[in-house]
């Protein structure tokens, strides 16, 4: 399906992907009693957080992420994509690691799990990272800095 005015958008695939992500977060909440926040779970798995989730659960969740992509690829999903250069990836990764620990979450924990329960902290966090993300891309574009091939 095409979205009028946005020929490159993939609204149906996006919505379907979102429903799967919501289902995954719902399973984590109703099944294990926990928040499916990827940055928190990654920190837990690597000893950078001592939130109550068991180490085995944290690792199982993280291992599941790429396995899910493998399933999509096997079902015919086109997943090839261009990534930024190593230096840019390293700088961005460092900022994301520092920021998500200080900010107690990322797009999944705050953006999906927190926003859907109208948590004040998550709403503020999500508006903040959306705003700085949009500003960052706008400034880079204005300066003519291209990071993706």
């Amino acid at each position: 399906m095409m979205l009028p005015g946005f020929p490159d958008a993939a609204p149906l695939a996006g919505l379907a992907g979102g429903v799967l992500i919501g289902g995954a977060a719902a399973l984590m909440l109703l099944g294990a009693g926990r928040i499916a926040g990827v940055s928190g779970i990654a920190a837990r798995a690597t000893g950078n957080s001592n939130s109550g989730m068991s180490l085995s659960s944290a690792w199982m969740f993280l291992i599941g992420l790429p396995l899910g992509a493998v399933v999509v690829a096997m079902l015919g999903g086109e997943l090839e994509a261009d990534f930024a250069s190593p230096l840019v990836l390293a700088i961005a990764g460092l900022l994301v690691g520092i920021g998500t620990r200080l900010g107690s979450g990322c797009t999944s924990g705050h953006g999906v799990c927190g926003v859907s329960r109208l948590s004040a902290r998550s709403l503020v966090a999500t508006l903040t990272f959306m705003a700085t993300g949009i500003a960052t891309v706008a400034v880079m574009n204005a300066a003519g800095i291209e990071v993706l091939p």
Binding site: L95, T100, L102, T126
Partner: peptide, 23 residues
């Protein structure tokens, strides 16, 4: 909370990756 989220957003915007998609 706000400063951390702001930093995260900058990193997200620079490379187009956040923790879930990156892993």
């Amino acid at each position: 909370l706000i400063g951390g989220s702001a930093l995260f957003g900058i990193g997200w915007g620079v490379a187009g990756l956040c923790p879930g998609p990156a892993i």
